[in-house]
Design a protein around this nucleic acid. Sequence first.
DNA 1: GTGCAAAGTGTTACCGATAACGCAAACGAG
DNA 2: CTCGTTTGCGTTATCGGTAACACTTTGCAC
Lengths: 334, 334
Amino acid sequence: MDKRKPSLAEVADAAGVSKMTASRVLRNSGRFSQETRARVMQEAERLNYVPNRLAAAFGSDTASTLVGVLVPRLSGGLFGHVVEAIDATLTRFGYQTLIGTYENRAEQEETWLKSVLAWRPAGLILTGRAHSEATAAMLKAATLPLVEIWDLNTRPIDISVGINHFDCGYEMGRLFLTKGRRQIGYVGGDAASPGLGRTRFDGFQKALRDAGSRPAETEILDDRPSFYQGYYGAQNLLSRHPDLDGIYFQNDEMAIGGMAYCHAAKLSVPDGIGVAGWGGMDAATTLQLRLTTTNVSTRALGKAAAETLVARVRGDPVRDVIEIKSQLVPGDTL
Amino acid sequence: MDKRKPSLAEVADAAGVSKMTASRVLRNSGRFSQETRARVMQEAERLNYVPNRLAAAFGSDTASTLVGVLVPRLSGGLFGHVVEAIDATLTRFGYQTLIGTYENRAEQEETWLKSVLAWRPAGLILTGRAHSEATAAMLKAATLPLVEIWDLNTRPIDISVGINHFDCGYEMGRLFLTKGRRQIGYVGGDAASPGLGRTRFDGFQKALRDAGSRPAETEILDDRPSFYQGYYGAQNLLSRHPDLDGIYFQNDEMAIGGMAYCHAAKLSVPDGIGVAGWGGMDAATTLQLRLTTTNVSTRALGKAAAETLVARVRGDPVRDVIEIKSQLVPGDTL
DNA sequence: GTGCAAAGTGTTACCGATAACGCAAACGAG
DNA sequence: CTCGTTTGCGTTATCGGTAACACTTTGCAC
């Protein structure tokens, strides 16, 4: 059996035209008569012609239609939504998504970047603004359209589409104080890579400091933020500081885990202890108590990132710093 | 500024060898002296040489190192974990993941498939066993390594790595009966594409029928399964059938949403009404009541799928039907 | 009728890597 | 010392498309 796919030349021969004309018809670019068009399309159909983008991208010096997208993870809700929105948008514009996860580890980011750059992608979407030296060097050398997402960067390498995490934290800190909380704790994850929750925490601490309140006690676990980490983080923190009257969690997953611990430990929420998260998980809105959190428009972020990248690839003018607004949800748990 | 990346020829020239020798060194294949190797590597490093896989994949008739992965969605937990595991495994073997989401819609599956086949991928991982005619035809014509995941298929096109959803449903049906439930309901989503939850429901109904019990009342919503859909699905179903003493939800997200509704409606779980889900979300294990559900090893599934695909691509012998075991979790909500 | 532009198509060269093959030098066995 | 084998490297052809350019034909204005 012949596994080879039919080539453009075969389609062209069958239609009685040159490769170039067939190419023009199939890409719908340049000039050709309707008659020719019909013949070429018909033969392409008949032969089950599948264009070879490998050859097309290689042959022309214009970039490929691949876009590399790198996120810390795909599980855990938020990034899944972001990537889903990115992919949907890129697909709409005729691009393909080369995905990667790096678990907040610089060396994985580097490895991924190296392998993706080898595909001469049209552009990249990376998470975060902190890159290792090697990564930064590769990005600089590559000089391709690049969107850094998640963490708003007012001086991006190319384009930044993100959230102001510092303000999120600050605002939540204010809310803790307004609600009369004074003995406050913070539980986070991913200690190995002081990444994206960190800025939120900094803003949170600043709010406490500005008000002359005691800074938050912290428990940073060395694993990805998750329900379990929230549960055990709360347990650890409260065993060290039983007097806490409020805990800010890195995200909603952890907050829900933390609330589960509070329930198990017979601590009532919000009377005994206040709890807040970040991110706006669906789950959090249908709990018995509506979780105090910050809602983030993950889909809007993904869509904006992809649309901006496409615009940049096409050479259209773009704003290079785009803030995605987040919204404090007072909820019932603080 | 010259944006062109250095080519193999430039590296070869700089090292004073032919392109072919440089190629051999960089791919570590064929013969070359250690001395030559050192020179080539050094020049490649110095020039920041980035290999061009576009050219490599195109030039040789061996397939590319791209693998297409198609799932219904990336949000909602389960598939995020699956893709994460797939990607990690593929990366380990030197492949890149071309992701796609099709929202259970056949025409999106087709569009995606067409665009991905144009990249001459080494293999594909698709979700589900039901494909449209056009999709099936393309897959047949392509004759490439193909893993169908999620839903176990004992007669796969090529390879199937999945879960026996029918048995999951049957087993859960038995548990409902054991727990004394007799007025039973089912809430599911994605009505537009009677897809993957359907088989579970069939098994569930069979268990009730086999025991001579009344078949389940159903509420199938026309949207992706989610917390909200669980909430509103339970509401709809219970308003039509207030006498229900147990509801089986398509997944854990929906079940948690359903429990939230029960709480809002002052129905006690499990005394007034029993609730069960499917999937084994982290969240479900740290709720005040441990959710009755079926645990699924999403990461194991993803890993097995990717490993099997790689083996097939390399021509190693593989089992073509691999069942990923799932485990009933009795929990406290039924 | 001449000139000129636009439409429609073909020719040639090339993108950057690899496969297949060829060839010289070094090496080892008898 | 000869012959066969291995080692190390180069030459040539090629993958499937596209850019750039050239060419012919047609239509239309003057």
